[in-house]
Computed example of a mutant assay.
Amino acid sequence: MTTTQSAVDAGAAPKRAGAVANVALSDVTKATMASATADLQRDLGGAMMQSLMGVLPTAGYASAAKESFVQGQDRADGIATGHPDG
């Protein structure tokens, strides 16, 4: 290790320690709450979008299944009465 590098390292350590020492506990708590709030908003937004993206295809599938069932029932009624085309 060179003397220049050790001087830089020695000078940097007190600055970092001093910066951390000057942070009040209330600032850390505020930062923690802000982070938690941001996480909650992101998670909640993701859950809502996931639900919405699940509801749309399900509604389309349910509509298509119902239509298919009705057509099948009409065809079955036509076969039972002797008219297979409905």
Rank of each mutant, 00 (worst) to 15 (best):
A10N: 13
P84F: 07
N22D: 04
V20M: 06
M1R: 00
M49Q: 05
D9Q: 07
G45F: 02
T32S: 01
I79F: 07
A24Q: 09
M49P: 14
D74E: 06
P84D: 06
D9F: 12
D77S: 06
V23N: 05
A64N: 06
A38T: 09
D9E: 06
S26E: 03
L40G: 00
S35P: 11
A17F: 02
A12S: 13
D43P: 14
R75H: 15
M53K: 13
K15G: 10
K15S: 09
A13D: 08
P57G: 01
K15M: 14
G18P: 15
L56P: 04
A47T: 02
A80H: 03
Q71I: 10
D43T: 07
M48C: 11
N22H: 08
L40E: 01
S35W: 01
A13M: 13
G18V: 14
Q71K: 14
D39A: 12
S35V: 08
A10M: 12
G46R: 03
A24R: 12
S26Y: 07
M48R: 15
T81G: 06
A17T: 03
R75M: 13
A65D: 00
R75N: 13
P84Y: 08
G45W: 05
V28Q: 05
T32E: 01
D27N: 05
I79G: 07
G82I: 04
D85M: 05
G46C: 05
D27T: 08
A64R: 04
